[in-house]
């Protein structure tokens, strides 16, 4: 489904600020895989997601989605097949446009935007039904500007928008990190049910180790721009938060001491 082959990416090459962000990352996701990604700050998790989404172009290596080589495809074209959520809940929605206009924009994903009317009356019922599953009462506020919603409401709406046209791949970059614990759980539960319902291949970065183990079917640990551990099957089932935490801090320390030596 999604294949990353030997991806390298260096920021500010040949300068004093040179930083190898991805140092030979290879990863294979099958259809329906839900992979969680953990690792310390600077390990390359978000960079990997950005490389997949096309926000950053890679220096070498190959990325393919569903058999199609997308290594050199600009990000707005990749977005036809990808839904994406950021850590910042404000990033995924247009604040000065109404809820229905935001939904209509994402409902048009992958189609050519023409001179047809933007928000069709006939879609209104569908938007209402879709919104009602959030349980936030947004279905009665279609004409409300999104800027008036809370961060949690906006993130939930972004999740709907990212999946309103079922994407081949869903990229979640710490999408619950900025929310309060109750809202974070709600958004996480919603993510799980939408992903399961539509069998969406998903890549989720998180700092919450228990989320990383309890959601999805695979967990990978990154450090220093590399994937250092892949957990799946029995090994993952037997893994506890404590044990993983120890592995996690060991790799973080390694990376740290490497830097100290240099």
């Amino acid at each position: 489904m999604l294949t990353l082959e030997n991806i390298y990416l260096t920021f500010n090459p040949n300068t004093a600020n040179e930083k190898v962000a991805l140092n030979g990352v290879s990863l294979q996701l099958e259809k329906g895989d839900f992979v969680t990604v953990i690792g310390s700050n600077g390990a390359g998790k978000s960079t990997m997601l950005n490389a997949v989404a096309g926000t950053y172009m890679t220096d070498s290596g190959k990325i393919s989605l569903d058999g199609e080589d997308i290594t050199n495809m600009p990000n707005h074209k990749r977005a036809k097949h990808m839904g994406r959520l950021f850590q910042d809940p404000l990033k995924g929605t247009a604040p000065n446009m109404t809820i229905e206009e935001n939904l209509a924009l994402s409902y048009g994903r992958g189609t050519r935007r023409g001179f047809g009317i933007g928000v069709r009356k006939s879609d209104e019922k569908f938007y209402k039904e879709t919104l009602s599953r959030l349980g936030l009462g947004l279905e009665d506020r279609l004409k409300t500007k999104v800027g008036l919603l809370s961060g949690g409401q906006r993130q939930a709406l972004t999740l709907l928008m990212a999946t309103i046209v079922t994407p081949k791949l869903l990229l979640l970059d710490e999408h619950t990190a900025a929310l309060d614990p109750v809202t974070a759980k709600k958004v996480m539960d919603l993510t799980n049910s939408i992903v399961a319902e539509n069998n969406i291949t998903t890549l989720m970065v998180t700092h919450n180790i228990s989320d990383a183990l309890n959601t999805g079917n695979k967990t990978i640990l990154m450090s220093g721009g590399k994937i250092v551990l892949v957990l799946e099957g029995e090994e993952r089932k037997n893994m506890t938060v404590e044990k993983l935490m120890k592995l996690y801090s060991d790799t973080a320390n390694d990376a740290f001491s490497d830097k100290m030596i240099l």
Binding site: P74, N75, H76, K77, A79, K80, G83, R84, F86, L90, K91, G92, T93, A94, P95, N96, M97, E101, N102, A104, L105, S106, G108, R109, G110, R113, G114, F115, G116, I117, G118, V119, M161, A162
Partner: peptide, 25 residues
Amino acid sequence: RTQKGMALRATGDNEEMVKASSINA
């Protein structure tokens, strides 16, 4: 109010979101 016009308004409002909706900002 057309699809194009809505994409235009969104571009001024939140460029990241527009790109994520497969629109060439």
